[in-house]
Design a protein around this nucleic acid. Sequence first.
DNA 1: CGGAGCCTTCCTCTACCGTGGAAGGCCACA
DNA 2: TGTGGCCTTCCACGGTAGAGGAAGGCTCCG
Lengths: 132, 132
Amino acid sequence: MRTVRIGEAAAAAGMTTKALRFYEQHGLLPPVHRGPNGYRDYPPEALARLQFIRRSKAAGLSLAEIRNILQIRDAGQAPCAHVAAQLAQQLTDLDQHIAELTALRASAAEHYQAASQGDPTQCDPAQICSYL
Amino acid sequence: MRTVRIGEAAAAAGMTTKALRFYEQHGLLPPVHRGPNGYRDYPPEALARLQFIRRSKAAGLSLAEIRNILQIRDAGQAPCAHVAAQLAQQLTDLDQHIAELTALRASAAEHYQAASQGDPTQCDPAQICSYL
DNA sequence: CGGAGCCTTCCTCTACCGTGGAAGGCCACA
DNA sequence: TGTGGCCTTCCACGGTAGAGGAAGGCTCCG
């Protein structure tokens, strides 16, 4: 198992080198060993961590939340309970967000009905558009 | 009908003075007449425009979209057709956004099920958390 | 005359997640 | 030796809709 440079690690995880440096800078990746030329040298195990970040992002977690989880794991604890709590919060947030968008959609649909059936010649210029 | 200063206009429209200057700067409000002291002097008709902006924002339109509508009206045309098209687009966008969030919610719910029922002691540290 | 409360402009900051580019170093191949 | 392809750092930008504040001018009231 050889170490890889940032480009290869990024490609293996389906990310960009920019993203990896960004994650390191923001505490999602520990400072990695540097070769004599200053290049980052990633051990093979780093890939699992990158993939975890990927999965978590896909699950809708923010980088801050992912960082929290990683810190728990790095402290030697199993983050399962924290992950469950985070996901529960996520569900609540999503439900509220979806409800808001759904309400907005209903309101937009009403406006749309009015606007598409309305008569432009009856629109009062002073009101700009009477359908909004 | 007297002209009003920015504070009064903003209060009447339920906005802040910051917002009014911002709208002017971004082309939603035409440059307004200034008094001899440099203060902005809003004519009473300006209120309708502000309220239109308010309604449009409440309908979920972005400032850019609102600006487009206002430009059409300022060009002497009735923006109804454009408004209808904009709202139709808005509906499409909302539907897609809602669908995405709904899918994300389902996936989060699945993860949550797994995480809350899982056994932390069986979690492989190398994977950080097997429920994500 | 003094102070409160408006107004002006201009600059910075918010949150999110990186992307783009500049300037320069390192390495291999022809 | 040159050239292309990696790598390094650091700075700026994007989109959204303003908020916050500094420094200074105006106006009204007592």
